[in-house]
Amino acid sequence: MNGRKVLLLVGSPRGSASSSHALGDHLLSLLEGHGMATKKLLVYPALGDDKRMTELLAAVDACSLLVLAFPLYVDQLPAPLIDTLQRIADRRQGRQGEMRQALAAIVNCGFPETLHCRPAAGIVRLFAAQAGFRFLGCLALGMGGAIGKRPLAEAGGVVRHQARALKEAAPFIAEGREIPLAVIELMARPMMPRWFYTGMAHWGWKRAARKHGVRSRLGERPFAEV
């Protein structure tokens, strides 16, 4: 171990059964291979639980590298993650300056196109600046639904670009250097043709609805005014 500590905050409500966890956890194992000590915390259970939030904030203080892994919700970060980042920034007011701690992020969206993640990447960059972290970059990807809750290593060839991007990003992140643009672009590559992804998604929604007995009611408008 090189004495450097990385803290992964998973910002998905699905916790360890999420694409965000799969991606973040994979990066964590790569960083371990670069000699970093690792710790992982889920954001959602910490909100509304003072003890867990105190532990989370202390872990942020103690890390040399903070990694955020989260899904895109309505074009940006999920609400509980914003709440947590605000608490972190508030706590760090007045102690900025040296920027010894670094921050990197992984954001995945369910749309096929990675460009939907652009505002989220901007928000994370501004959080880093306002909370006194050195920003190393944001690895964004579309088609996040194709990963599911599987560990990335078990997701097979479909995530080959993303697995390679994380592997190439790891030494930069471990050394506190900015993630190269080529690696960010590699991460953003589609996992499959768009038509195939959208077709699979439609099939998946219909199958889930059928399972719950509402296949014919998918388009229902319960709050339509009559």
Binding site: S12, P13, R14, S18, Y44, L47, P71, Y73, P78, A79, P80, W205, A208, A209, K211, H212, V214, L218
Partner: peptide
């Protein structure tokens, strides 16, 4: 907070 369960699309 949203649970990310997608019930609003496929269950109710």
């Amino acid at each position: 907070a949203c649970r990310g369960c997608f019930s609003c699309w496929t269950r109710t």
